[in-house]
Design a binder for these strands. Structure first.
Lengths: 340, 340
DNA sequence: CTGAAAGCGCTAACAA
DNA sequence: TTGTTAGCGCTTTCAG
């Protein structure tokens, strides 16, 4: 019903052979002006559209098709994150002439990994089974934002541990000792690693890691609010808080301000992500910038290498981050100032 | 080099016919346990991957392939916008089992529209020529976020004019009369329409539209800053400003606060987009929410209808918006209050 | 339960 | 410049 006319019908209608029609479709120069015109006109008149599969099969030429899987997980999807990563892969795909097939899935909807040359998971969230399948089928795969130590699969992730350690260093340099943290969802690797890095750094610097100073959030605003309220109600109130995401950090600041605490004068806050909202916030946020677009780009490039057979063993990358200093932190020994 | 073994080789190695191999690939039940096992094992051993194009061609079954074109235009791409729209189309594509091919392009890179069943432009920015081509080739096409009055093409856009009028109404109801606007890029339809709607609404309410009260921005922060500074330096300073995007609105507020003006007590500001940043801003922003995800969803649904032959004439939709009231506006007759 | 044979719609030698 | 003739790799009747 959709596409019944084929090249033969066009050929007949135009009074030429299928070869000639094929030639004009493929812009092969060796067709007379006259036939060219006639064929084009016939194609348009009949509304003919070549069958892509037949073209590809016959010519043996086909772009590499890569599935870009975005977990349908509201948290990540709504955030700044997904688009930045997609952008990186998308621009690389354009450059390498790959077809990028985007799938937004909760991991349950049917995605046939057999149908593509390779797969990129923008994150692993909820797609563990899908990953098993691609691995099982031997389909070249890259997992972004989740470092899989054990599995023989390509990974490109962010070095969250080192990032968290740097944050602690920074805070310590400003004179803080009572540093708390509000974690992300610990089921998410990034969440866990940021906490690990934090704890490790605190310990190695002989700083107290009070149990009450570790509060568990889940990247959602309500969890951050609860955590911040608990933290700020403490008798031994921290002078600084490392929060696992910018969203949550901003919410933490809101709680502090509502309580009449000045930020950064009385409380320093560091976020994570460098979400654009961090820059424009009430108190521009000091945070950790992650190379998201770069991660997407690398993911596609690595997959391409593998597909071209130029690589065999899994590539595992841990990308460095950058601390972006804005105004949400302050040296402890400075006299609190009042603003305008 | 990539994929040399075919079904025949698998068949031979497994000691069965190609038909049988095909059957196990396609999970047709009528294969003996024994053969099934043997074939699967052989497939894995040889690392055989079926040729998708051959499969599709032979079976006549193929998913619809739809190109989702995202203009590579930093402004739009970086924003909240693109992902929301993609999300809408992506989820619909998943539901309808369409392949969504994402192209991030500046309109110049080679995109072969012949190779897909339909095209969705996430925006027209820079893709005018591409659109001409798809139209010329007779490929079903949907343009999002840009209403094309003349062209016989499906459009789903936001009703920016009415939205702007509503904003004026709202401000008038709060008692404002000296209302200014900072426009978006007027080369972008949304920018122009928001200005048009503003001017129209002001005139129809007999309110003064001072030339000095219309400042031209381009959706960029620097332009907003300049515009805001000019506006607030005026002798006849407006009591309210309608800004064409949330980003710019927030920058406007920053300028105002830096000048010592209180918002909303001394200056009301309305944005446009309902970008998440608007909610978490220093002064939570009253703004216009656009149904972006819905727009994406509709785009794909409409395209699907056309591809199924259930629709012929172009569909043109103008989606309504919603004013989200937060705290950046204030009644003029209220006594200014102090916060905190 | 299995296999032989006939295409799917198009391209690409090879002749003419 | 054009047409003839084989396939591309797989699925699918239709016999067995």
């Amino acid at each position: 019903m959709k596409q019944k006319i084929d090249i033969a019908q066009v050929a007949k209608a135009a009074g030429v052979s299928t070869t000639t029609v094929s030639r004009v479709i493929n812009r092969v120069a060796t067709v007379s002006e006259d036939n060219q015109r006639r064929v084009r006109e016939t194609i348009k008149r009949l509304g003919y559209r070549p069958n892509l599969n037949a073209q590809r099969l016959a010519s043996g030429k086909a772009n590499l098709t890569i599935a870009f899987v975005i977990p349908r997980f509201e948290g990540i999807f709504h955030s700044y994150y997904a688009l930045q990563v997609l952008k990186g892969s998308g621009i690389a795909a354009e450059r390498l002439r790959c077809d990028l097939l985007v799938h937004i899935t909760d991991g349950k909807t049917f995605v046939n990994p057999m149908a593509v040359n390779g797969v990129i998971f923008a994150d692993l969230l909820g797609c563990e089974e899908l990953l098993d399948r691609t691995l099982d089928e031997g389909i070249p795969t890259v997992v972004l934002n989740h470092y899989l130590e054990e599995l023989p699969v390509n990974c490109v992730a962010i070095d969250n541990r080192t990032a968290a350690e740097r944050v602690v260093d920074y805070l310590v340099r400003l004179g803080h000792r009572d540093i708390a943290t509000i974690t992300g969802d610990l089921k998410v690797q990034a969440g866990l690693d940021r906490l690990d890095g934090f704890v490790k750094a605190m310990k190695s610097r002989q700083l107290p890691v009070r149990e009450a100073h570790i509060r568990f959030g889940d990247f959602g605003l309500p969890s951050a609010r609860a955590a911040a309220e608990a933290l700020l109600a403490l008798k031994e109130r921290p002078t600084a808080i490392f929060v696992a995401s910018d969203d949550m950090a901003l919410e933490t600041i809101n709680v502090a301000l509502a309580k009449g605490l000045r930020v950064p004068e009385e409380l320093s806050v560091v976020g994570f992500d460098d979400n654009p909202i961090a820059e424009h916030a009430r108190v521009p946020l000091t945070t950790v910038r992650q190379p998201l677009t770069e991660m997407g780009r690398l993911g596609l490039d690595i997959l391409f290498q593998h597909l071209k057979g130029k690589k065999q063993s899994p590539t595992k990358l841990l990308l460095p981050t950058e601390l972006v200093e804005r105004v949400s932190c302050r040296q402890t020994w400075l006299e609190p100032q009042h603003h305008g």
